[in-house]
Structure formats: C-alpha cells, structure tokens
Amino acid sequence: QIFVKTLMGKTITLEVELSDTIDNVKAKIQDKEGIPPDQQRLIFAGKQLEDGRTLSDYNIQKESTLHLVL
C-alpha cells in the first residue's frame, strides 16, 4: 500500500502494486475520492509523476507517501 496526502491534510491509503502506472493510481484515487484523474497531479520527492510511468520507475516503495495537488 501507499499513502496519498491531500493539501487539505487528509491521507488516503491505496492498495497498489509497484508495477501499477500513475494512471492506475489516479483511477484508484477517483474511486475513493471522486476526483477526476485529469484534475489530479501527483508529486513524489518534489517531482510531478507522469501518467504512463509506473510507481517503480520513480523508486516509490510500499508505505511511501505521495502528495496530491489539484
């Protein structure tokens, strides 16, 4: 699992595989929060994550926290 922190300070827990693409992750956030993926920007280690890449491409591990910017 990974964590996604919103600017409102809310933390969302997502069940993911490290082979999941950023697209997949955004879809899971949409399922939980109702935010359309095209409005989501995910940040990790100061970098904006690109849709076609996977979590492992960015060296994101289990229990990592991503930041969601709208």
Rank of each mutant, 00 (worst) to 15 (best):
Q1C: 04
Q1M: 03
F3G: 02
V4L: 10
V4S: 00
K5P: 00
K5L: 13
T6L: 03
T6H: 02
T6F: 05
L7M: 09
M8G: 14
M8S: 14
M8L: 05
M8R: 12
M8Q: 14
M8N: 14
G9R: 08
G9D: 13
G9L: 06
K10Q: 01
K10F: 07
K10V: 05
K10C: 05
T11A: 11
T11G: 11
T11R: 11
T11N: 14
I12P: 00
T13F: 11
T13Y: 09
T13N: 13
L14P: 00
L14C: 09
E15R: 06
E15C: 06
E15F: 04
E15K: 10
V16F: 08
V16H: 07
V16C: 05
E17N: 07
L18R: 03
L18Q: 01
S19H: 06
S19Y: 09
D20N: 07
D20V: 10
D20R: 11
T21F: 07
I22L: 07
I22H: 02
I22R: 01
D23Q: 03
D23G: 08
N24E: 09
N24P: 13
V25A: 06
K26G: 03
K26Q: 05
K26L: 15
K26D: 00
A27R: 03
A27Y: 05
A27N: 04
A27M: 02
K28I: 09
K28D: 12
I29G: 00
I29A: 06
I29D: 00
I29K: 00
Q30N: 04
D31H: 08
D31Y: 03
K32F: 10
E33M: 01
E33D: 04
E33V: 02
E33N: 02
E33W: 01
G34V: 08
G34W: 02
I35N: 08
I35Q: 03
I35D: 14
I35H: 07
P36N: 06
P37R: 09
P37M: 12
P37K: 14
D38N: 03
D38M: 04
Q39M: 04
Q39C: 07
Q39V: 09
L42Y: 09
F44I: 03
F44V: 02
F44P: 00
F44G: 14
G46A: 04
K47M: 09
K47Y: 14
Q48V: 03
Q48C: 03
L49V: 13
L49Q: 00
E50L: 11
G52Q: 10
G52W: 01
G52I: 06
G52E: 11
G52T: 04
R53L: 03
R53F: 05
L55R: 00
L55S: 01
D57E: 14
D57Y: 10
Y58M: 13
Y58C: 14
N59W: 09
N59M: 13
N59K: 12
I60N: 03
I60A: 05
Q61T: 12
Q61N: 10
E63C: 05
E63R: 08
S64V: 04
S64I: 05
S64K: 05
T65M: 12
T65P: 15
T65S: 12
L66V: 14
L66S: 15
H67E: 15
H67V: 14
H67Y: 01
V69F: 08
L70E: 14
